[in-house]
Nucleic acid binder design. Structure first.
Lengths: 116, 116
DNA sequence: CCGTATCCTACCTGATACTG
DNA sequence: CAGTATCAGGTAGGATACGG
């Protein structure tokens, strides 16, 4: 029996790869970083820190490394002084944010209702 | 400047109610509980424990209380012995899962690609 | 059957300092 | 500018035992 009829039987069972990806995508800062990149425009480290308001340097680094390893975010470092590094979505990452943004939009529209 | 052009300016800024709701919805077990209820059929505590494979009793209780307080999940206790309690989605919760399920479906379809 | 209470650990956070 | 390193403190989450 799967968790819900919408998914294949083995999806989101314990130890399933889907569970790992779900945890990555749903981690505290991933949605904010992914949403910030959703416009398609590459962003620099400092700009990402401003957009994901409240993120520590440690957690931003950790989140970006994770998303890069997952093939969702691309890191492009230009070898200049001072360093210039840009982050953008991979095609895979774009597919993800196309589903993520509607969810976040819904939350933005209904947050008041939810917290009274 | 908002986090991304898709959202209103104040959305997902630090301390904004949207941030609280985002954290609730993206918490470790919420997606699995909400997805389990997405079929529309009310589920009992023991069935939810089976569907959200790996969840501890403490975290299931905490997650359900949170979702109930947020007005996303409805708790219906029938006063019988032994106790019979059912959980289901509120209309608000249904609106949420309509956006959540496509995201989780995408993850189920692309998890292999992501983890190589 | 449906939870609560307790304890314990792991991670997140925040601050600070430092490097190419 | 774009990070890494380290350490102290708090909080989310896990394991287990017990109660209505």
């Amino acid at each position: 029996m799967s968790i819900a009829s919408a998914f294949p039987d083995q999806a989101f069972t314990q130890g399933c790869p889907t569970r790992v990806v779900l945890d990555h995508v749903m981690s505290k800062w991933s949605p904010l970083v992914l949403a910030a990149l959703s416009d398609g425009e590459p962003l620099r480290w400092s700009e990402l820190r401003r957009r994901a308001e409240g993120v520590s340097e440690k957690m931003l680094a950790q989140t970006l490394r994770m998303l890069e390893q997952d093939g969702l975010v691309l890191r492009h470092a230009r070898p200049v002084v001072p360093p210039h590094v840009e982050y953008s979505l991979t095609p895979l990452g774009q597919g993800l944010v196309e589903r993520l943004v509607p969810l976040m939009t819904w939350i933005a529209e209904h947050a008041d209702q939810i917290l009274e």
